[in-house]
């Protein structure tokens, strides 16, 4: 038992943080706290998903939000048009995102470095433009969630509760996936690809297959989150579903906390969202919050490229054993 705890301590720390965030609105009993924690958890789950590709495999997906949007559209379509219930819709959102990631990944993961990054931007923009042209998805206006769909939860209040706890569950799930992948043979292969793809192949790592599965894994949870987010939001449209700016924020969360670590995306996403809230409530900084965030990011990239958790790990051997 002690041995198991010791080996998995790197998992328990991020899970405890998430548990704390999830419990906070419960303890304070405040709905506005719940909404604030919701946006943090969403960020954590998105960042942790991206980290599997970006941090472990070293492929810079700039348009990762595409899977969030795809999930959202798939989920809202089957709920509003075909009348599926939310459970199946979430499952479908995850499946569709994973499937598209598989097909897309087999093609674009051949590209390296900046070329891959550009292709992901292109895919996201193409999807945004495409959905705007598909009448079945509501074209540029998008789709609305009928209020009657909130009824099974006892109205909007119950729905908000339901979505919140679903996102908590998905956040826990993605952190467990992150940890298990990192500690697995598969994850070691991914990290070998990150360090030197050609050398990894010379050692027998089947890079094309491994990269594709990393891409699929990093797409599934965003797909599921997309369904929940837009269900809660009540509306989906191309500009909201495929917002490139959010995609880039995901990278910032990962970088800030510590790329390639399990805890990093949790810390990075949480800290960034809180800092932004602080900036937004400060009269002087409110107008230039984006510029302040930019300066912060620049400082991290230039001076602490390993992020907070990565920096702590490099400073202290004991922390290296505890923080994954």
């Amino acid at each position: 038992m002690m041995d198991f705890l010791k080996r998995t301590v790197g998992l328990w720390i991020p899970l405890l943080v998430v548990a704390g965030i999830a419990a906070y609105p419960l303890i304070t009993g405040s709905d506005s706290n719940r909404e604030a924690m919701f946006s943090i958890l969403l960020a954590i789950a998105l960042a942790s998903s991206l980290n599997i590709l970006l941090g472990y495999t070293g492929y810079v997906s700039f348009g990762h939000i595409v899977f969030f949007g795809i999930g959202g559209y798939a989920g809202l379509y089957v709920m509003t048009v075909l009348g599926w219930n939310i459970w199946f819709a979430v499952l479908l959102g995850a499946t569709v995102a994973g499937l598209i990631a598989y097909l897309l990944g087999s093609a674009i993961l051949r590209l390296r470095g900046g070329y891959f990054a550009l292709a992901t931007i292109g895919v996201n923009e193409a999807m945004r433009a495409l959905t705007g042209n598909i009448d079945a998805l509501g074209g540029p206006i998008g789709m609305d969630v009928n209020f009657s769909l909130y009824k099974p939860f006892g109205g909007p209040g119950g729905m908000l509760q339901f979505v919140f706890w679903s996102v908590v569950a998905l956040t826990v799930l993605v952190i467990i996936i992150s940890f298990v992948v990192k500690k697995s043979k598969f994850g070691l292969g991914l990290q070998a690809i990150r360090e030197d793809e050609d050398a990894a192949e010379d050692m027998g790592v089947v890079a094309p297959r491994a990269k594709t599965w990393a891409y699929v894994l990093s797409a599934i949870i965003p797909g599921a989150l997309g369904v929940l987010f837009f269900f809660k939001n009540g509306h989906i449209e191309p500009g909201e579903a495929f917002r490139l700016a959010l995609s880039i924020e995901m990278i910032v969360w990962v970088m800030l906390g510590g790329i390639g670590t399990v805890l990093g995306p949790v810390v990075g996403a949480g800290l960034y969202q809180e800092t932004r809230k602080l900036l937004l409530t400060n009269a002087y900084l409110k107008n230039i919050q984006l510029a302040v965030a930019g300066a912060l990011l620049l400082a991290i990239v230039l001076f602490v490229p390993a992020g907070i958790v990565g920096w702590l790990r490099s400073r202290n051997a004991r922390l290296r054993k505890v923080l994954e």
Binding site: L54, G58, L298
Partner: peptide, 15 residues
């Protein structure tokens, strides 16, 4: 790595 320059130029964009 390309990520570093992508992010550093993007942060200038944000500023």
């Amino acid at each position: 790595s390309p990520l570093a320059s992508l992010l550093s130029t993007f942060s200038v964009n944000m500023i």
